[in-house]
Every structure is written in structure tokens, then in C-alpha cells.
């Protein structure tokens, strides 16, 4: 009897491992044309982004960052600092790697926004949907990524495509959450006033609620970008190219210098992207 109090009863064991394995095997054997199509179209999308990013010469990118940061900060010293940091990535020989990483980040962020903004709007409109959506979003953010990375590799192959999917899964929740949150927080009286003037639901949404919620939505976008950057190294464990794979190589060969160099470059990319997007939403405030 006392055993029951100290040890969890073994008799009520349920095997959830085997059914999951079976399901994944089933998908592998039967749905591979579907996954192949997904993989191919994502690959095309990624290639397009990749060539667009690569078409920007290094000096143009540095100049663009200079002007963009001047626009958001209005301080010449800040602009000089950010462009110097970017220049530094080139100096330590990682500019090409950074382009590869940027392509993955940009692709994931675009997909996240395409899915996230509409989902956030839908979620804000219905309490019922949001009751179901919240735990799903929590799972996406907390499930250890390697758990779904490995089946993703089996289904979609190794390389940048599963990396974009994994990054999207992780980076999507903040933009959905904050879009929905932002729209809900819009003053009820403002919405009532718009209604009183005879606005349709769509007009209220696009002309009142979204503009009012914009700072919060932009905070979500900023968060999504940061989350995408934080997945860079994890994704390199499934063959994504760029700065993350430099970090992994540095670790695997016990070359701390190599790891730190790539790590510093990731930090610089993160800081610049963060400050620029934050600047944009602060201006909107």
C-alpha cells in the first residue's frame, strides 16, 4: 500500500511513444509528395530571398544601415556606430556568412508575419478561438526545438528549408499574441464612436483598431525578429548555413575564437535589427 504513495503506479502506463513514431513513419511513407512540394516551394522562396539579399553589395548595406539608423535615432553618432559595427563583421571575415543567415531570418520573418498578422486579428475578434490558440502558442514557444527538428529533417530533408520552418514555429507566437493583444486594448469608446458614425466592421478594423494598435503590433514584429535570430545556432545543427554553422564548427573543433567571432557577429546583427525596428515603432507612438 505504502508503495503507491512513494512510487508512481506503473499499471496505468500508457505508451504514447509508439503511436507518435507510427504517425511519423506513416507521414514519411504516404505523404512524401506533399512534403516534397512544400519543401520545393519553400526552397524557391528562400532562393529568391537569398538572391535579393546577395544582390545588395556590402557598401550599400552599410550605407543603408547608416541612413536608416539616422532616420530612427536622429543621432549621427548612433548611425556611425551601427555602420561601424556592420563594417566590423566584414573585417572579421564573416560578411558572406551574415548574408546567408540574414536570408534565413528574413524568409522566416516574412512567413511569420504573413501567417501571424491575420491570425492575430482573427484571435482578437473571438474569445473562443483565443482560448484554443493560447495553449498552442505556448507549446510552440516552449517545446524544445530538437524534438520537431529531427522529424522535420526526415520529412523535408537537411538544410535551410527545415531551418526556416523551425524558425517560423518559434518566431510566430509573439506577433500573433501582440497583434491580438494590441487590437483588444484599443479603447472601447473609440470603437463605439466609430460605430456611431456608421463605420462597417472592416472600416473599424483597418481605420481605427489597427492604427491604434500599431505600436503593440510593431513590438510583436520586433519580438518575432529577435526570436528568429535566437534560432540561428539551433538551426545550424540541422545543416543551415551561415553564422550559426560557424558557431557549431567552432564548438566542435574546440576553437573558441571561431565560435566567439561568429557569436559576436550574431549579436551585432541582432542589435542592429532590434534598434532599427524598435525605432520604427517608437516613431509610430
Amino acid at each position: 500500500m505504502h508503495k503507491l504513495l512513494t512510487v508512481f503506479p506503473e499499471d496505468i502506463y500508457i505508451d504514447i511513444k509508439a503511436p507518435i513514431d507510427k504517425f511519423i513513419n506513416f507521414m514519411l511513407q504516404n505523404w512524401s509528395p506533399f512534403f516534397e512540394a512544400v519543401s520545393k516551394s519553400l526552397q524557391l522562396f528562400l532562393n529568391a530571398i537569398g538572391s535579393a539579399v546577395n544582390a545588395i553589395p556590402w557598401w550599400l548595406l552599410i550605407i543603408a544601415v547608416f541612413f536608416a539608423s539616422y532616420k530612427v535615432s536622429k543621432k549621427i553618432s548612433t548611425s556611425i556606430l551601427y555602420s561601424a559595427l556592420l563594417f566590423f563583421i566584414g573585417v572579421i571575415g564573416l560578411f558572406d556568412m551574415m548574408y546567408a543567415t540574414l536570408a534565413i531570418i528574413i524568409a522566416s520573418v516574412i512567413i511569420s508575419l504573413l501567417i501571424g498578422l491575420p491570425s492575430g486579428i482573427v484571435m482578437s475578434a473571438s474569445k473562443k478561438i483565443s482560448i484554443f490558440a493560447v495553449p498552442v502558442l505556448d507549446t510552440m514557444q516552449t517545446m524544445p526545438s530538437f524534438v520537431y527538428l529531427i522529424p522535420a529533417v526526415m520529412l523535408l530533408g537537411l538544410g535551410n528549408v527545415p531551418a526556416v520552418i523551425a524558425t517560423t514555429i518559434y518566431a510566430l507566437p509573439p506577433v500573433i499574441r501582440l497583434t491580438s493583444h494590441g487590437i483588444r486594448q484599443v479603447d472601447v469608446e473609440v470603437v463605439e464612436a466609430a460605430k456611431a458614425f456608421g463605420s462597417t466592421k472592416m472600416q473599424i478594423l483597418f481605420k481605427v483598431q489597427i492604427p491604434q494598435a500599431l505600436p503593440t503590433i510593431m513590438a510583436g514584429v520586433n519580438q518575432t525578429i529577435m526570436m528568429a535570430i535566437s534560432m540561428v545556432v539551433t538551426c545550424s545543427m540541422i545543416g543551415a548555413t551561415g553564422l550559426g554553422s560557424e558557431v557549431i564548427k567552432g564548438i566542435n573543433r574546440l576553437e573558441s575564437g571561431r565560435g566567439f567571432a561568429a557569436g559576436i557577429a550574431i549579436v551585432i546583427v541582432a542589435i542592429i535589427l532590434d534598434r532599427l525596428t524598435q525605432g520604427v515603432f517608437k516613431k509610430n507612438e
Binding site: L158, S236, I238, G239, S245, I248
Partner: peptide
């Protein structure tokens, strides 16, 4: 010649 990134990713492939 692709660097698979990790042992697990190689066997999964």
C-alpha cells in the same frame, strides 16, 4: 559536400 550540423540530423536524413 554538405555539413549535416549534427549526428542526429545525419541519421535523420
Amino acid at each position: 559536400y554538405i555539413d549535416p550540423g549534427s549526428d542526429a540530423a545525419l541519421s535523420a536524413s
